[in-house]
Design a protein around this nucleic acid. Structure first.
Lengths: 192, 192
DNA sequence: ACCTGAACACCGTTCAAGT
DNA sequence: ACCTGAACACCGTTCAAGT
C-alpha cells in the first residue's frame, strides 16, 4: 500500500468510528468521506461495502471475544465461562447501533466481509456450550446455532430503547433457560 | 372523506400491502405511490409517516391478537393460553420483514401512530402473564415488559434467515424459561 | 377538499479523467 | 497505484398551484 493510501485508510477508520458512534450502522458513507476530507470514491475504494467497513471497525473487538473465550475455558468452570462469555457477546453487538442486524445477516452470507469473523465467534461459542453440556450444566437440546441466535436476539432487544431498561433481567431469564444444573445458581448470580 | 379520497385510500392500502410484502418495512413510499398511479404527495397526505401506513396495514391483525388473548383467557388453562398467545405474537411480528423494529420503537414513542396498538397488545399480554403467575405456572420474576421484549426478540430472530431454521426450537427454549411448573410439560409440547 | 408536479437536499454506484 | 469529480438513479419532505 502506498504511503498516502495507508494514511487515508487509518484516517478514514477513525472518522468512520465517530460517525458510526453517532448514527449507528446507517451512517452515511458520503458523510464519512466528507468528514475525512476525501472523495466518496476513495472511501469506497478502501471499503467497497458497508460490511467491509464494519469488518475493519470490529475486527479487534471480534478477536478479543475469541481470545476471551479461550481464557475463560481455562480459568472458569464451564457454566460460568459460558454465561460470562454470552454476556460479553451481547455487549459486543451493542457496540454500535444496528451492528446485530449486520452480524446476523453476515452469518448467513459467505460473501460478506464479516462472514469469517462471525463464523469464528460462532465456533468458539459452540465449544464453550459443548463443554458445559458435557459437564451437565447446560441444556443438551440446543446447539451453537441456538446459542448464537439467543445472543443476537438478546443483543437486539438490549439495543432497543424500549427494552434496554430490562436488558439485565432478560439476560438472567435466558441464562436460566440455558443452564440446567440447580447447583449453578451461585455461578449465575456471580455472572449477573 | 370525499369519494375520490376514499377510493384512493383503499387502493393505496392494497398496493402498499403488495410492496411491503416484497420489500418489507423499507419499501419505497415513492414506489408505492407510483404503483398506485398516484402522486407521492397524495400517499403522504393519507399516511404522513411510514408508521401511519403500517398502523393501517396492521390494525386488523393487531385487533385479532387482542381478541385472541380474550378467547384464550376463557378457553385454555393460564399456562397454555400464555404460550399459545406468545407464539401468535411472534408470528405476527414476522408478517412483514422489519415490522418488529417498527413495533419496538413505537413501543417507546407515544407520538408514533403505532403506539396505541402496541400498548394494547402489551397490556393484554401482561394480563395473560399475570394469570399464569397467579396460578404458579409462570415465573414470577418477570413482568409485561419482559414478555413483550422476549416476544419481540424471538420475532426478530425468527425473521433473520440465519436463525429462522431454528425458530421453533428457540421458541421452545424461551417458553421453557417462562413457564415454571413441571406439570406443564404437556402443555408446552402441545403448543410446540 | 383533495390532488399534483416540481424543487430540494439527500443517498450509494459507477467510471472516465487526473496525478 | 491511487485519488477525484461528475453523472446517474434513487430516496423522503415540502409547498405553491391546480381542480
Amino acid at each position: 500500500m502506498r504511503a498516502d493510501a495507508r494514511k487515508n485508510y487509518s484516517h478514514l477508520l477513525a472518522v468512520a468510528r465517530e460517525a458510526v458512534t453517532e448514527h449507528g450502522v446507517d451512517a452515511s458513507m458520503r458523510d464519512i468521506a466528507r468528514r475525512a476530507d476525501v472523495g466518496l470514491a476513495t472511501l469506497l475504494r478502501h471499503f467497497p461495502t458497508r460490511e467491509a467497513l464494519f469488518e475493519a471497525l470490529l475486527c479487534t473487538h471480534l478477536d478479543a471475544l475469541t481470545q476471551k473465550a479461550r481464557e475463560l475455558e481455562t480459568s472458569k468452570p464451564p457454566d460460568e465461562a459460558l454465561v460470562s462469555w454470552f454476556r460479553e457477546v451481547v455487549a459486543f453487538v451493542q457496540s454500535y447501533r444496528g451492528v446485530v442486524d449486520l452480524v446476523a445477516s453476515a452469518h448467513d452470507d459467505p460473501d460478506s466481509a464479516l462472514y469469517a469473523a462471525c463464523a469464528t465467534v460462532h465456533s468458539v461459542g459452540a465449544q464453550l456450550l459443548q463443554r458445559a453440556q458435557a459437564e451437565g450444566t447446560a441444556r443438551t437440546d440446543m446447539n451453537g446455532d441456538d446459542l448464537f441466535a439467543l445472543m443476537s436476539a438478546l443483543g437486539w432487544a438490549a439495543g432497543q430503547p424500549a427494552f434496554a431498561p430490562r436488558a439485565d433481567h432478560l439476560f438472567h431469564i435466558i441464562a436460566s433457560a440455558i443452564l440446567t444444573n440447580p447447583s449453578s445458581n451461585d455461578a449465575k448470580k456471580a455472572a449477573c
